[in-house]
Design a protein around this nucleic acid. Sequence first.
RNA 1: GCGGACGUGGCGGAAUGGUAGACGCAACCGACUUAAAAUCGGUUUCCCUUGCUGGAGUGCGGGUUCAAGUCCCGCCGUCCGCACCA
Length: 840
Amino acid sequence: MTDRFDPAVADPAWQARWAEANSFVADSASPKPKAYVLEMFPYPSGRIHMGHVRNYTMGDVLARFRRMQGFEVLHPMGWDAFGMPAENAAIENRVHPGAWTRANIAAMRDQLKRIGFAIDWSRELSTCEPEYYGHEQALFLDLMEAGLVFRKESEVNWDPVDMTVLANEQVIDGKGWRSGAPVERKQLSQWFLKITDFAEDLRSGLEGLEQWPDKVRLMQENWIGRSEGLEFGFRLAGTVPGGATDIAVFTTRSDTIFGASFVAISPGHRLAEALAAEQPEAASFIATCKQGGTTAAEIETAEKRGFDTGLEVIHPLDSSLKLPVWIANFVLMDYGTGALFGVPAHDARDFEFATKYGLPIRRVVAASAEDCNAPVVEAETGSGIAVNSDFLDGLDSATAAGEVIKRAETAGWGRGKTQYRLRDWGVSRQRYWGTPIPVIHCAQCGPVGVPRDQLPVVLPEDVEFDVPGNPLDRHKAWGKVDCPKCGAAARRETDTLDTFVNSSWYFIRFASQPRDQPFDRAEAEAWLPVAQYIGGVEHAILHLLYARFWTRALERTGKLSIAEPFKGLFTQGMVTHETYQSMDGRWLSPDEIELGEGGAVVERSTGGGVSRGRIEKMSKSKKNVIDPEPILDRYGADAVRWFMLSDSPPERDLLWSIGGIEGAARFVQRVWRLAMLPTGAVGEDLPLQRRLHRTIAAVGEAIEGLQFNKAVAALYELTSAIEKAAPSAARDEAVRTLLLLAAPMVPHLAEQAWSRRGEPGMIADAGWPVHDHALLVDDEVTIAVQVNGKLRDTLTAPRGLGRDEAEALALALPKVRSQLGEQPPRKVIVVPDRLVNIVA
RNA sequence: GCGGACGUGGCGGAAUGGUAGACGCAACCGACUUAAAAUCGGUUUCCCUUGCUGGAGUGCGGGUUCAAGUCCCGCCGUCCGCACCA
């Protein structure tokens, strides 16, 4: 019987050995250079999926590689354990969210352990435990004291049946995703974090993040959305309701100021509200504006509508010019000043609006001065030459814009301003399963922070989910407290924090977890920033921006001083699978289909025809999910890990296939057979040694660049070369080194083989092999010979052959001679050791 | 609408401007075997009946260069992000 590697035995055995030896426990006091490798921690949904496996395998390879290179590695794991699914489960299954979450964590921890990740489990944390969120409450109070927390009325999507706030993604066709009830807009007083204080710093800091994907940096830059322009007030003609004297506007196109033909204010603007109080028509117009949905599709198709207030403003550069003031549904309240001046000729929205309501359309930008009277048939939004614009005429758009700002500042009616698209971060959630906001509301003193010696504010366990809404609101005892300031009867804040707050600092808590404070500054700074962070691109904006903000906020509070939390970022692709649908349109899982006669796919139970759909991300709705657990049972951890790293570049999607996993399992056995070859032969094998050292260099470089698919290919090549080699001392050495190179990817196999070969210690503790430069190159090279750039032949020559010799050898080749005929070559290009190109 | 990425065999994908298709999957042929599994060897970009003095070939059309998958210009297609941001 042939000796085979048996993962069912080896995997648990080595996992136990690593745990006993505390192999992956990170020592903060170690004198070794430190490397913090982190993957985005999972939400404990109940089961590990292939996306997790791929994500954590990549991080694990890097962590093990760094360890072998001599780094002290921090590679932790935890649970992003607050969130709505737990509450939904509570509602549906009558289980407590905590019980549900903790059971899920236990199951998923076991699953992760089966894959053999080199994780420091001693630092495991779960955001739903008071030991974590209590410290988060302390940090929240720090931010409050630093002036980074404020309370504001804001409009939310309100589900009147479930009595809860919905995120935009939970509003489908204007209805609550769960209740199906039409969503209302409601004003709620909510807690906000002042992320806009850091808008410029968050933007300019992106430039230093050289180890981040350009795509993510760009996405964040666009999200922050910096624009330069002019802010000024239009003076109102006459008296107006509310007593306002002017309307502030912001524009990035101050060069078009002479093209203004109306001023539009948002339905939420103070002046609009003041008007509504006096004019029923204005009030009803504003009410209809608020009805529409907030989804992207609805906004795009929404018709521009306006209401003429009858008010007028005076143009700042021409007092004889009066512009009508409209309330318009397309003006956003929370960008700029909530008001704008409309230039129909040079803005698509203003054009649509002006066309509809018969407002003047005046050209003030043209391709040249002669085109000043060309008709405007559609909005011309590009830049050009200012026309019909008094003192601006003839200037290019950029110069004209600057000139207007200069005059405004000199005359004192406006100023240059930098505007950001970024909004402050609303962190209030009307949910139970989250971090309680540590605030007490007192009728006398207003909102007061919970005294620190009363932290953590622990979530009450005795809550009911049988009625919609936030159970904290209904919990009588929990909400009743005395005001810490004046002692009067007061009530607790019942909103909880957005779960993105939990994930904004967990990487700091991993680095340092004292009992009495969120983290120890010196210890945290010893590990941070995270050297390599790995996760899905879906977090490119929110999570990564919030964490960058939180780091800066901590610096503001004096608790921590690091510039950026994540030095290197890598966004990995998804795991995909083919989809299948029966003829009547039911999605079928891969288990429900089989290959019928003639290679057609049929449904196993009925024999009915099946259409193969697109390759898509694994999802329950499409039923194209492959559960990792049975795959692990069948093939073992190493085959799964190897397949996750093979084939596709890690930033791209990986197509799951049964052939792929079988190929990976085959490779594991191939390496095992090599490792079991008899050793002790003598003799050199220079070509194999060269191959070996080239592979050492290639694999190291590939892992360093997170190009795992290339590392895999290089190891395949080395494996084939060793299989073909005759016994020799060099072959023994090559096998030994192969195990070291493969160890980060297939650690159980590597340990088992290492031990069977009588090597001392564990391979997890071995050093990474070093390549010998002298062995990276061959003595002989193959030189390509081209005629007119087309390959005609090759020649083998000693390395370092001179240009003249190479040219002579190439010209002597029969194929070259026949190509050239009698003509002498016009020119010969020689690239030493690579190529000769003869130009005829 | 704005911004970005990508397009190479049957499939996933390799290729510092210098021999396109490494490596894997799949398929086919063969060896071993009573047989199967496992394993090993070989073939596989396309076209011409065949080719180690055949031709074409990296989405399409141009260009730069001795030389282009790679650089530049213009199209086409696919995917992703943002989206009434003044």
